[in-house]
């Protein structure tokens, strides 16, 4: 591991470590990466901010984990961010159709995290499962993954749901 420690140091330098690294695991939901407020961006959103957007409920599917999540897009967070192979996933499309938010292909163009209502991923369990919860974005995994890997500490039932099929998305 010595090489990688050196590598990390070379890459990250002596500047302060990114805040997610400093978050003590024991602080659980209070850690900056998985803060309750940021994980549920629309919680407490006013009628003005919500505008005409509807909310949906997303439950975990067979052998899935986490949730249920309520996704409420707002005027600011109006993108359903699909980070899946082969374009907009049907689950992302259904969430967009029911809420009135816009489907967005994360592999084609770049969005600000502040614009994202939720991320739809097709992660096999290790990397993408943690990246979006860490950024405070509600995350919907098509595959029935349970949290694993070094980013598992950022994942909880209020910011992650897996094994999701179109039938698991309903009007809230």
């Amino acid at each position: 591991m010595a090489f990688w420690d050196k590598m990390k140091k070379a890459l990250v330098g002596d500047s302060p470590a990114p805040e997610e690294k400093k978050a003590p695991a024991a602080s659980g939901e209070k850690s900056p990466g998985a803060g309750a407020a940021s994980a549920a961006p629309a919680a407490g959103a006013s009628a003005e901010e919500i505008g005409d957007f509807k909310s949906v409920r997303v439950e975990h599917g067979l052998r899935g984990w986490g949730g249920p999540l309520t996704i409420q897009p707002t005027k600011q967070r109006n993108l359903i961010y699909s980070v899946t192979g082969g374009g907009i996933h049907p689950v992302a499309q259904k969430i967009a159709d029911l809420t009135g938010a816009s489907p967005f292909d994360g592999f084609k163009s770049k969005a600000d995290f502040e614009q994202i209502a939720c991320a739809v991923i097709d992660c096999g369990g290790t990397a993408r499962v943690g990246v979006y919860p860490m950024k405070g974005i509600p995350t919907i995994d098509i595959h029935a993954a349970t949290p694993s890997g070094p980013l598992a500490k950022y994942i909880n039932e209020t910011n992650f749901v897996s094994g999701v099929k179109e039938d698991n998305v309903t009007e809230a």
């Binding site: 990688w4 890997g149 070094p150 980013l151």
Partner: peptide, 16 residues
Amino acid sequence: SIGELAGEFIAEGILV
């Protein structure tokens, strides 16, 4: 390139 946070996975024996 090698991402800044790749080391978190590498420390657990995982290359992403």
